[in-house]
Write a protein that binds this DNA or RNA. Sequence first.
DNA 1: AGTTGTTTGAAACATACGTTTGACAGGTAG
DNA 2: CTACCTGTCAAACGTATGTTTCAAACAACT
Lengths: 223, 223
Amino acid sequence: MAQSDTVDRILDAAEVLFAERGFSETSLRMITSKAGVNLAAVNYHFGSKNALIHAVFARFLTPFSDTLERAFDDLEQRCNGKPPTLDQTLRALTESAVRMPQRNDRGISIFMRLLGLAYTQSQGHLRKFLEQEYSQPFGRFMRLLKEATPQLTAVDRYWRIQFMLGATAFTMSSSDALRDILQNKLGVATTVQEMVARLVPFLAAGMQATDPMQLAVSKPSVA
Amino acid sequence: MAQSDTVDRILDAAEVLFAERGFSETSLRMITSKAGVNLAAVNYHFGSKNALIHAVFARFLTPFSDTLERAFDDLEQRCNGKPPTLDQTLRALTESAVRMPQRNDRGISIFMRLLGLAYTQSQGHLRKFLEQEYSQPFGRFMRLLKEATPQLTAVDRYWRIQFMLGATAFTMSSSDALRDILQNKLGVATTVQEMVARLVPFLAAGMQATDPMQLAVSKPSVA
DNA sequence: AGTTGTTTGAAACATACGTTTGACAGGTAG
DNA sequence: CTACCTGTCAAACGTATGTTTCAAACAACT
């Protein structure tokens, strides 16, 4: 075969190492030696380390983006006319993520962790790449959120969406470690699906909390 | 003065650059040139780059830790006997953070961003340092959380605390960027204090959401 | 002043990084 | 067979990093 599996070996190794150690802390030499390929292969097949990072994200984000669009289509059709509820919208998102075809058990964890890193590590090129590549499903999700929370002001909604993103990205990005700790501390084994099932009500409740400024204004710091 | 201000110049520069770019992405040469000191000064005064990172955290985390302990003391005394509520506990934390003596306007932002990075960037040495240095106030906070949410199972509480940490750390770690976006998009200027005031009700509501494992269709209620 | 211990300074060190090079193998087509 | 494209390989390149060195400057004290 002309296109050997070198490209996939590199992507597999890179995705695991990036998830474990972050982008700057993972060298091309680590990746290529884990993949069992020559160092020059990365620059030959991808052009640069940044392009490899983009390729790692594109490989799982593009199918996920398609799955998500279809989930939103289904959801809006089921609601015919009426805007979907917040809970429905969140579930469409999380179930799309959890149901993505996984290469193995750790697939979903790596997926999550990478998403967390993408938001967290201030890699300018990555953010730019993701924004202009996946702006459509992201924008659609935002629109659904807006329609599901008409009671919120734009500013309130903005901040609460950030809080949601944070809780999600952070939990995802350390989901493995958190599950391990839980196993050791309380002797409870947890699946990623259960974790997500716990996350959604938390987010929905936070998103729909009573007016935050009411509390803040009525109690202006007792300095 | 024997001990010149070299140490403080380095800490000032390092704290700003770390907050802006992360740890790995900030070189000692950037720090020393911003501080206007010789490159060797870092290794002379601190020993290593990692030790400098620890010193940056210790400089604001130690006073914060003390302030927090006193805030908890006050709180428990005011409640004499009864365990403080979740809202009271969270406010004791956030108000201690916001009221820390700041060197300048950006002080609180940098403080927040660094805390976010500490959780986010998987620097093993940093996590170890923070754990063994500030385990006491952290443990006390966890104990207060437990007493404030007796209705939760240990597992539920564990996950929800992670969600809270995530929303907080993430928002903190990009608080500057998020405030800028809000300014540009909606023309609204926000202080860090307002941001925190919005965060607390979100966290409290999520923390007290109805049982996550039962299927909620819509309508999550808040306490 | 002279001595001692501390702090700075310019330069070098060893190492690791991303990237490039050029030689070489394998298959395909003319 | 020759010519050619594609992919692999070992080696090197240039640069940036954290750290070390050692002499000079400084401060404090007798």
